[in-house]
Design a protein around this nucleic acid. Sequence first.
DNA 1: ATATCAATGTCGGAG
DNA 2: CTCCGACGTTGATAT
Lengths: 256, 256
Amino acid sequence: MTNRRFTSLENPTNKETYKIIKEGLRKRAMIIIFSCCRVHYYGRAKSRLGLGERLIIIKPDGSFLIHQDRKVEPVNWQPPGSKAKVKIEDGKILVESRRRKPAEKLTVEIERVHTLSYYLVRDIHELEVAGHEEDMCQLILESPNIIEKGFRPIAREYQTSNGFIDILGKDENGSLMVLELKSRRAGVSAVRQLKRYLEDFKNDKHGVRGVLVAPSITHDAKELLEAEGLEFKSLEPPQELKKDNKITLDDFISSR
Amino acid sequence: MTNRRFTSLENPTNKETYKIIKEGLRKRAMIIIFSCCRVHYYGRAKSRLGLGERLIIIKPDGSFLIHQDRKVEPVNWQPPGSKAKVKIEDGKILVESRRRKPAEKLTVEIERVHTLSYYLVRDIHELEVAGHEEDMCQLILESPNIIEKGFRPIAREYQTSNGFIDILGKDENGSLMVLELKSRRAGVSAVRQLKRYLEDFKNDKHGVRGVLVAPSITHDAKELLEAEGLEFKSLEPPQELKKDNKITLDDFISSR
DNA sequence: ATATCAATGTCGGAG
DNA sequence: CTCCGACGTTGATAT
């Protein structure tokens, strides 16, 4: 069946398959193929996938996905900007996708097509999402007292020799506080990260407090944290979708 | 059209859509819907996606994907093990997917279906892939001399207070060598990682060498590496697909 | 283009 | 089940 917005075929011949894929690529359509195929990849790694039925998706932006009947991740893929081509070789349909840098090539050897279609997609909306580390950061800058009474932020993304501190501030006694934020349960790696940031402040005369801020913490992480004399503050990332005007650090005096 | 392996419809009515999705879910088929829809998610985060045309995939293992016409990643999804349901509410098709722990819910409000199909998928093959850190490790254990003449591995995944060392060994003079492997271009974070592992060996009498093993290294990482007196050894991850019997460390004497 | 960091990361393996 | 680290991570942002 064919209309203005999409074209769809069942059990097409090789000739039809070739024609429709070619047409879909030329129109920069979203192409969907359900077929029995083999897949080969060579580039950053190398992979091979034997014969089986999979869903193939070629998007207008060059993204190329091959999905098996399990898992969220595609079994093979190419990123946006890749160039797809279709060929017939020895009476078999080959679909290839290449990327230049790094050089990568994905080849799908199609044995038999079950359904084939392409769509001229109308979709202008972007996802609006809340509940990230960034949202926690905003929340703390808006309401520093949720960390503790008297906490004052000084800097955000403060650079150290071991990376960027999420939030640097002072407690009510004037001691420096280094906050490391995680939007989900924090593990030992988060504690190690915090520990590294503190190395730059080892000689600070007023003393420095390291605080891991996350909704929860693993047992091992808690142990390491306490062994290192660091602190944990439980905080859930806020999940409000309305796009609020962001608070900048201009509101705070960067006085360190 | 309907046959034993798949069912496919174009521009179905709500009633047909409901029936086919229900049937596909019951048969644990892979369901593919191209439709104009809205999407809501609530769980580890919260998100909203306005009206637009997207590809919806429901897999037999419970994975649920919504793909826009761009990017490799789905715009919304649910992991394997989630439970999908279809409803009609106020004359509109709703498809929901829930997960228990953590509690997550994805809701798709379908405005209009363009194509709808489900497949009973036959696919037994797993991906065979080569070119990982693991393959480099195997290669080095098989042929230690590629690191340097006289290099002898002692332990793999050797535990320190700062995490696991990829390979620990000795050079021909008996000095300890700590190898940190990366299957791609190494950055400063890799150097910092190596640096941390060495802390446990600061007092070793024979001296310890830290070696970063990777196909290449970033400029900043090279500088930091040299400033710390560490070394770089260029090594490409092998990309051989044949499943070779793995070498275990039983072949080496753990004598440290 | 390169480097760095977060993610509803996902996934696999070990305890 | 939880915890931990790798990934052809991807995607976004700053340099």
